[in-house]
């Protein structure tokens, strides 16, 4: 049997299948491109050929698009990213004390104590230092994002870049380029600035103790890893499936939930070919004016969410049950 985890993030949609030993049997990394429904369907098309829907013993969703993903695939568990990441990290290593997670548009720190989350923080208003920003800078410098880290390692010194704000960081980088610094030194400076920004903003007031796991898409960037190690003074670890950790966590949580219930709500891979659409409208029922999202599948409605009063059958109570699972 397999356990499916789906992490619909702002930049990427990750699907992962775990086997009975919680080892990754299949993983798919797709760009969300602002269309989570299509991303999920694309992922399912790839999975459909190799696996059968009846092989799936449980399905879980996480990420900012977890609600929509859950109503489309019929998830057993809907979990926030923080718990999902912590669950996945603990599955790999019981001794982990700190998780640094930097994804497409948000970055988090999770502090664990004796295997339970004791504190966490997420970036609030600023996206400096997240994947999207690095992506953009790589594009601007005309360096493939995969090579970004290698460039940073080549540099002997680092150029100081103002990292507090993405806009200022960019103009500072341009300024340093105009002054004639070499590209790899600038990239290393950028990594250092982002790490500084992370430690001063998100990790402010939190003690980072080893063992530290570095996960999320940005962990692919070896320059960032090195910069973190330099700043913290000890080694940090990047797990093998660093960019799938959210999905892995969702799958593990789904396994636990479905084992408790004894069945799965998973709707099968066939929905890859169905015509799924979402529409949103402003409910006029009262002055709250909730923005309600309605999901259609082949002309029938499979779910609503976003309403507060429950008039449209908001599945908030359902997620509440999952929460206590």
């Amino acid at each position: 049997m397999f356990y499916l985890g789906v992490d619909v993030g702002s930049v990427s949609t990750d699907l992962v299948l775990l086997d009975n030993n919680m080892k990754v049997a299949e993983k798919i990394y797709l760009r969300t491109k602002g269309n989570p429904i299509k991303a999920i369907q694309d992922g399912f098309k790839l999975l459909k050929d190799k696996f059968d829907g009846s092989d799936i013993a449980a399905a879980g969703t996480t990420g900012s698009g977890r609600m929509i993903a859950s109503s489309i695939i019929g998830a057993d568990a809907v979990k926030n990213e923080i718990t999902a990441h912590a669950t996945a990290a603990l599955e790999i290593d019981q001794d982990v004390r700190t998780i640094i997670e930097i994804g497409g548009q948000d970055s988090k720190i999770i502090v664990l104590n004796n295997g339970i989350v004791s504190d966490f923080a997420m970036n609030t208003v600023c996206a400096a230092g997240t994947g999207s920003f690095l992506d953009r800078q790589a594009e601007r410098l005309d360096i493939p994002i995969e090579k970004f880290g290698d460039y940073a390692l080549k540099a002997r010194t680092s150029v100081r870049i103002a990292g507090r704000c993405a806009v200022f960081a960019e103009s500072d980088m341009i300024h340093k380029q105009q002054l004639g610094y070499n590209q790899s030194e600038i990239i290393r400076g950028l990594c250092d600035a982002l790490v500084r920004n992370y430690l001063n903003n998100i990790a402010k007031g939190k003690t980072i103790q080893p063992k530290v796991l570095f996960q999320g898409g940005v962990a692919a960037n070896i320059g960032m890893k090195k910069a973190f190690e330099n700043a913290l003074g000890f080694e940090i670890y990047v797990p093998e499936h660093f960019n799938m950790m959210g999905a892995i966590g969702a799958a593990i949580i789904a396994k636990k939930t479905s084992e408790k219930v004894g069945k799965t709500n998973f709707r099968g891979f066939e929905l890859a070919n169905n015509n799924i659409m979402s529409r949103s409208f402003e409910c006029e029922g009262c002055s709250n004016k909730c923005e309600v999202v309605k999901i259609h599948e082949n002309n029938s409605i499979i779910g609503y969410f976003g309403d507060r009063c429950g008039k449209w059958g908001s599945n908030s109570t359902k997620s509440a049950n999952d929460l206590l699972a």
């Binding site: 900012s64 926030n80 718990t83 339970i116 989350v117 004791s118 966490f120 997420m122 929460l323």
Partner: peptide, 24 residues
Amino acid sequence: MTGEAGYITRIEAFIDLLERRRED
């Protein structure tokens, strides 16, 4: 400018944290 998604994520994660603490 607050996004509701990140806000809910935090609340849910905080509740998870409290639950796990208690179980522990």
